[in-house]
Design a binder for these strands. Structure first.
Lengths: 188, 188
DNA sequence: ACAGTGATGTCACTTGATGACATGGGATCC
DNA sequence: GGATCCCATGTCATCAAGTGACATCACTGT
């Protein structure tokens, strides 16, 4: 491959994010992105399944690592605790680059299609975690619920964190969210 | 309008559901639906924002009535209890026609785009309920969380109910789901 | 040098979605 | 009753997303 030039994949990713920020997601066509990246539109689709996926193709890696984290939790831990451990790892990965997270989140929140896709990614993580819990012997319903509410708590915390102007840690936001969750369900 | 003929809206809805069941969602084009309903494709888009929305345009009414149910809950009730009351009303509406629910669910589960859209509808309900909780004086975080976990419990129960071959009541499934949720968060 | 492999370009096409404009029939008002 | 208005729809044109088929060119290893 001769001298090193950034692959078309990363050039496309950068071009897309820049355009989404400059003029908005809907106002950006695949042709625009491809042009800025110096390739054809056809090539764009060889790297990304669709226009949205550019912003989400990191999710797979995220999921992978949080699953690994879940596996590392002692079997004695409760289902919810195991999920929380996995999500804390996720939080560390995301939380390490707050500026990028904010930019990305701004683009996503400005568009319905992207908000949908983001929810899907969270849901996908929830399903994956639930599966792993089942593999550990957790019951069907409990596995689904533990994963769902863990991810819900994470998501609420994340949204607050990514939107807030302050500079608290994502990890702390999650902790607060989980504590609130316990109080809510305990109160009867 | 002369004698009564079903409006184009309902004809389109029926045509679409039939085709989605017969040959699948992706294999059905808007042109197909329009033809079966006796209108042009352009008219389809005057009734539905997109091909998916045909299956989801009842969601608004559902949301409306569950909000009304939430408003009817005494202010003294806990946030989660209020959400549960709202969801029980939703359950009654959905649960009244299990056959339709199953057909619809079969179509939705067979397609990724439709699963996405369904999650969005649930998310939308969650946001709406959270807003109403805030209007009642519930704190920001608590409102989001109560709505999220209530809806999550509902969704898990609903999916199990709509997929199961047995004939339990949706209401019971929700109750079971909520009980499990409380146990999960209590265990510490 | 040669065959193979992979990434890209080119072309053609289907489908989803939307804007602009025409029209026909029912409802409304005088 | 007839002029008029409005709404639903049809018609036409167009753009953008996405995909399949095939050609090309650079680089790889032998």
């Amino acid at each position: 491959m001769g001298r090193w030039e950034p692959g078309a994949g990363s050039r496309l990713r950068e071009a897309a994010l820049a355009l989404y920020l400059e003029r908005g997601f809907e106002q950006t066509t695949v042709a625009d992105i491809a042009e800025r990246a110096g390739v054809t539109a056809r090539t764009f689709f060889r790297h990304f399944a669709d226009k949205r996926e550019v912003l989400f193709d990191g999710a797979a890696a995220l999921e992978e690592r949080s699953v690994a984290a879940l596996e590392a939790v002692p079997a004695a831990a409760s289902a919810l605790d195991a999920v929380v451990a996995a999500l804390n790892v996720t939080a560390e990965m995301i939380g390490s680059d707050r500026d990028l997270a904010r930019k990305r989140q701004a683009v996503i929140m400005a568009n319905a299609e992207l908000r949908e896709r983001e929810l899907i990614k969270f849901a996908s993580m929830s399903v994956t975690l639930a599966d792993r819990l089942r593999a550990r012997g957790v019951g069907d319903l409990d596995a689904s619920l533990a994963a769902e509410i863990g991810v819900a708590a994470f998501r609420v915390a994340f949204e607050q964190w990514a939107g807030a102007t302050g500079d608290g840690e994502l990890r702390d936001a999650i902790h607060t969210s989980l504590a609130a969750l316990r109080t809510l369900t305990a109160a009867d």
